[in-house]
Design a protein around this nucleic acid. Structure first.
Lengths: 275, 275
DNA sequence: GGAGCGCTGTATCGTATGTTACGTATTTTG
DNA sequence: CAAAATACGTAACATACGATACAGCGCTCC
């Protein structure tokens, strides 16, 4: 089974004319970078003419050069998504139903955080810690518990944290309370919910700052969001995993808590006293 | 020191207008692949116009789009040469807030699963998949969202799944419905809630099978539980982390789904039809 | 040694791509 | 509330890119 262009080339390089073989060797030498550049650059690097490059990719079975490049990019993307760890860590021989799930989840988290900068998290935390505005949280069919989880923690360290529950009509009525200083945290992964999109749009129109937790394909709400957190959700299961988003949420909770340390500590003590 | 385009974006995304920020978010979400494609594809993916993409790369300091692409390619090439090195998010030397948190969480999960056998998970999954009994779920102050999350999924693939919400007095009334064939899933981590302990004890007296999600110090409920899942919760934060328990819950959801595959598939289809 | 075939490069063409100018909408500021 | 500034998209433009036709050259095989 041939699964990569590199293998394909190795398979056919023997049956190639001299010029095309030089092209092949040049590509392999710095695989796959030179293949992502233009035909002109490729041909110059290989020391052949452009048509030779095109004949080369045609011989590999591609209709045209862009198709060849797209395939290379897809390969690269796949390679980047599964970190080197996976090749190092053999896929857990015992291989029950557990390990693949755990491994995938761990990968998802690493990958999610790889696309998330300290800076971005700090910005969001600062926004959430800003006591001048209110914080609203809401989620979709399966992600609403994440919103609840986050709300439960944030509510402990600061006032004016509200989880939007129940019927759509009930949230909509809360829109009246929302303004520019307020933050709306939305959790929405596939399949994206129309009701949430509509709600986000209305909130956005009122100037509410939206923080969106979504999957890597980005909910349409991203259009209205000030901050977007794209978590990986793919696991070997019938369901998508929200674990990566959960961890991001916990990280944010921790960061906000740290920012409000001074005020927060007093508040927590008071709250303990009340219990 | 800014060494990658990703960092550059994180640094300036705050000062960008809405459209360019969406471009930035789209790029980061699938970094860096979309940036290697054409302006038209990039703009379509981000939901903005081509000029916005060009203004975006211009704001990053590039003279033109090809120059931007070349830089991305060089970055990729460097990354591919030394796969071990994390070019994107360097291990936060200054001790950013992110890495320690993520690392601790990943460790927690590995450790949690190390103490969890395939057999044990399979047993619990079998118990949850047993359609002769009902399934009740409940959680504590901060863990109730986990109960909700699990309930939301289980309810899709089988009937008689109930999340116990609201006042303590309301759950207690549900005790009357519980019997030997039924399962009660409880989430309880420090500080353990008396109300939950009391409830668990009463359920236990009625012969209900209890599945307990708790932390490594074990809630007193463990005494009544048929199955105990002890997750690691320690992270460098003011709060404990429930992430490991969350992942176990997802794993169980997956396992139960697989067991009910035949029935479940039909049920899911029917449910889709109703929506 | 000559004829035929295949490989390669030059030159040209059409087009997809990046770029720019301009008008409209939106936000900000006095 | 008015006015200026900024941001965004539409549409026209130029260019650089990939594709193709064709001619020259070398190689092989009769």
């Amino acid at each position: 089974m041939i699964s990569s262009i590199a293998e394909l080339i190795a398979d056919r390089i023997g049956a190639m004319p001299a010029g095309e073989r030089r092209a092949a060797q040049t590509l392999i030498a710095s695989y796959p970078m030179i293949g992502l550049k233009t035909v002109a650059e490729f041909s110059a690097a290989a020391g052949v003419s452009s048509p030779t490059i095109l004949r080369f990719v045609a011989r590999l079975g591609f209709q045209n050069y862009p198709e060849f490049q797209s395939t290379l990019q897809d390969e690269l993307a796949a390679q980047l998504q599964s970190p080197a760890i996976r090749t190092l860590n053999p896929p857990s021989p015992g291989g029950g139903t557990v390990s693949p799930m755990l491994e995938a989840t761990l990968d998802n988290m690493r990958e999610t955080f790889r696309h998330l900068s300290d800076r971005q998290l700090a910005d969001i935390a600062a926004r959430l810690a800003d006591r001048r505005g209110k914080t609203f949280l809401i989620g979709g069919r399966f992600t609403d518990p994440l919103a609840r989880y986050m709300a439960a923690h944030l509510a402990v360290i600061q006032p004016d944290v509200f989880h939007l529950a129940g019927q759509e009509s009930m949230w909509r009525d809360r829109l009246i309370d929302m303004g520019k200083r307020d933050v709306l945290v939305i959790f929405d992964i596939r399949r994206y919910q129309d009701s949430l999109v509509r709600f986000a749009e209305k909130a956005h129109q009122r100037g509410v700052q939206i923080v969106l937790f979504t999957d890597q394909w980005l909910s349409p709400i991203a259009r209205f969001a000030r901050h977007v957190i794209a978590g990986r959700t793919a696991v070997p299961s019938a369901w998508d995993s929200s674990a990566a988003l959960f961890v991001v949420a916990e990280t944010l909770i921790g960061a906000v808590t740290r920012q409000l340390e001074a005020d927060g500590a007093r508040r927590i003590r008071e709250m303990e006293g009340l219990r």
